[in-house]
């Protein structure tokens, strides 16, 4: 019995080691959205293209979409834009834009330079919808199913790796179940 007890510190050390090692690979800056499984929050905001057109959560009805939160002032948004163009043009993904805390003219300049992958763009100059969505750093990309329910939230740039490993499986699942 005494002998066995001598191994106790080793067992505890191994246990703590396993626990800490499991946490090593995780990126603490990426938080899971609390909205997963819930419908997109209510909103009524202007379309970026046309101030007279009001958009609401019904823009997400009927088809699985990506909701991409972007702004002209956000450097990473410039980086990921090319890939969004590819997704929209080559992969036929429906992308709804959320222009977050931006100015119209800046947003237009951005789109004129890099192209427009968005089917619709919600204009959110005060970041109210962004706040309700729990956006804490653009760019963020949400997967929204055909019923307007949030399925996933990705914080950071979307690229080939993120698309293949993260977003595509979620989208495939959302398409399958609705």
């Amino acid at each position: 019995m005494k002998r066995v007890l001598l191994f106790l510190p080793l067992l505890i050390a191994v246990g703590v080691g396993v626990f800490l090692f499991a946490g090593l690979g995780k990126d603490p800056t990426k938080l899971e959205s609390v909205l997963v499984g819930k419908p997109v929050p209510e909103f009524s905001l202007e379309s970026l293209d046309n101030p007279d057109v009001k958009l609401d959560p019904s823009v997400f009805q009927g088809e699985v979409s990506l909701l991409n939160v972007w702004a002209e002032w956000c450097p990473s948004c410039w980086d990921e834009h090319e890939y969004l163009m590819y997704l929209a043009r080559e992969q036929g993904v429906r992308i709804v834009g959320l222009n977050y805390k931006d100015q119209r003219e800046n947003a237009f300049r951005f789109l004129n330079r890099l192209g427009n992958p968005y089917e619709t763009i919600i204009f959110d100059p005060k970041g109210t919808l962004g706040f309700d969505l729990g956006v804490y750093g653009a760019p963020e990309t949400f997967v929204i199913d055909a019923d307007g329910v949030v399925r996933y939230r990705h914080v950071g740039v979307v690229n080939q790796k993120v698309w293949d490993e993260v977003l595509l499986p979620v989208i495939a699942q959302a398409r399958g179940s609705s």
């Binding site: 938080l31 899971e32 959205s33 609390v34 706040f131 309700d132 729990g134 804490y136």
Partner: peptide, 8 residues
């Protein structure tokens, strides 16, 4: 705030 940003 927790409803938007999580328990974090």
């Amino acid at each position: 705030l927790v409803d938007r940003f999580g328990e974090f």
